[in-house]
Structures are given as C-alpha cells and as structure tokens.
C-alpha cells in the first residue's frame, strides 16, 4: 500500500514531464508543417526579423565584448602557469566561435526574446485576440508562431557571427592594451589558426538556439493561463525552458560535432 503510493508519487511527475515533452514536440511538428504550407505572412516575418535580429544586436554585442575581454585575461593568467601565454589569440578565437558566442548569445536572446514573445502572445490569448484571429480565418500558428520561429532561426546565427567577431575584437583589445601583445601578430595568430568549422559549428548552434527560443516563447504564450498571473507564469516558464534547452542542446551538438 505504502509502496504503491510511493511509486505513484514517483510516477506522477515523470508522466507529467513526459506529457509536457510530447506536447512541445507536437507543437514543434505543427510549426514545421505550417512553415511549409501557405499562406505565408511576410509582413509579420519582417517585423519579427527586425524585433528579434536587429534589436538584439546591442545586448549580444555587449555580452560578446566583455566575454572576449575576460577570456583573454583568464587564458593569459592560466597559461602563464606553464609558459603558454602566447596561445591567448587562438584560444580566445576558438572559445568564442565554438562555445561562448553561440551559448551566451543564445541565452541573452532567450532572456530578451522568449520573454517578450511569451508575454505578447500570452496577452493576446487571454484577451481573446487569438480567438479573434481564428474567427477572421487566420490560423494563429501561421500568423503568430511561424514568422517568429523562422525569424529567430535565421537571425540568431547572424547575431552569433557578429558576436563572435566582437568577442574576438574584445580579446584583441585587452591583448594589445593590457597584455602587451603585438597587434599584427595577435590578428595573424587568430586568422591562421581558426578553421571554418570552428565558426560554422557555432552558427549551426545559433540556428538551433534561435529555433528553441522562439518555439518556447510561442508555446508558453499560446498555452498561457488566464489573466495577468497566467501571462507572468508563461513568460517565466518560456525563459527558463529556453535557457535549459539551449544548454542541453549545446552539450548534445558539441558531442555530435567534435567527438569522433
């Protein structure tokens, strides 16, 4: 009896978690299906691109700049323990392009974009604007979800690319101003060492993270509870889920790309 109750208590959250995974997967599959079937809402897509891509540039740029700088300081001080201070340019470049650019960029976009998408769609849901869309013969998935998911999937890799460059520039700035590197040598070491796939893998990660961010924002917004409290909870869940999924996906992708 006690055992049965214990097992039930153990099983319930597991089942709930599995059900949630199933619902998210179903939502993702629906998004992809609507992505390839008309009608397409180009104006919504353009607006999302501006909102997600362009307006995220400052925050992603700042994040990358300070991260690149700090990374240069750390590698210099760590490397000095075994006389390897000279590897600063190479490690900054590889660290930014493969890991820190996409992951930190993705997390910043999650904070900024997943929250705003969830709050916007959640508010539309609770004020019956989503129902109104349906009565006006417009599919909410096509009109609200698809443009945002597509825009984020395309815009985040670009943000990551820009972030990589700014991060490497941050490292270079610290390198020549505080660590007494020669500017030309620093840049030569960076460009000679960096391989295409170092950057390419980061961009692919960026696309996956962008997809995750917008999908979580839309999913939690569309499933928002009633009232202001419901929208608040949806916003919080969207950011938390997007962030955790980004880190999990990053581990899986890194394993996939760099272990043979």
């Amino acid at each position: 009896m006690i055992l049965a109750r214990f097992l039930a208590a153990l099983g319930r959250p597991v089942l709930a978690a599995l059900a949630a995974v199933g619902r998210v997967a179903f939502f993702a599959a629906q998004t992809l299906r609507h992505l390839v079937t008309p009608p397409f809402y180009l104006r919504e897509f353009g607006a999302s691109l501006l909102q997600i891509g362009w307006f995220s540039l400052p925050v992603v740029g700042m994040t990358a700049l300070f991260t690149g700088g700090a990374l240069a300081l750390q590698i210099f001080s760590g490397g000095s323990r075994f006389n390897a201070e000279a590897v600063v340019p190479q490690i900054v470049a590889i660290g930014m392009a493969r890991e820190l650019g996409p992951v930190l960029g993705g997390l910043m976009v999650a904070a900024r974009v997943a929250s705003s998408i969830a709050a916007e769609i959640g508010t539309m849901k609770v004020t019956e604007q989503v129902d109104a869309l349906v009565t006006l013969s417009t599919h909410p998935m096509k009109y609200l979800t698809v443009p945002r998911v597509l825009a984020a999937t395309l815009a985040v890799p670009v943000l990551v690319g820009v972030g990589d460059s700014i991060g490497i520039a941050g490292g270079w700035l610290v390198g020549i101003s505080r660590l007494h590197f020669n500017s030309a040598t620093y840049l030569k070491n960076t460009t000679d060492f960096l391989e295409f796939w170092d950057v390419g893998s980061g961009l692919v990660k960026g696309a996956v993270f962008g997809f995750i961010v917008a999908l979580m924002g839309c999913y939690f917004g569309m499933n928002s509870g009633r009232g202001a409290q419901g929208v608040g909870a949806a916003t919080k869940s969207a950011v938390v889920a997007a962030s955790v999924l980004i880190l999990a996906a990053n581990y899986v992708l890194t394993g996939l790309f760099f272990t043979s």
């Binding site: 539309m124 004020t127 019956e128 604007q129 129902d131 109104a132 349906v134 009565t135 006006l136 013969s137």
Partner: peptide, 18 residues
C-alpha cells in the same frame, strides 16, 4: 476555412489587436 469565412464575431471584450 470555408466555414469561418461565413461568420463574423463581436467578442464581449472587443478582442481588438492592440
């Protein structure tokens, strides 16, 4: 789609796109 195209609806709360 063809079903909904025949309908118009005024929501109690207006439900305007803000």
């Amino acid at each position: 789609d063809t079903f909904l195209a025949r309908f118009g609806m005024l929501f109690q709360g207006g439900a305007l796109f803000d």
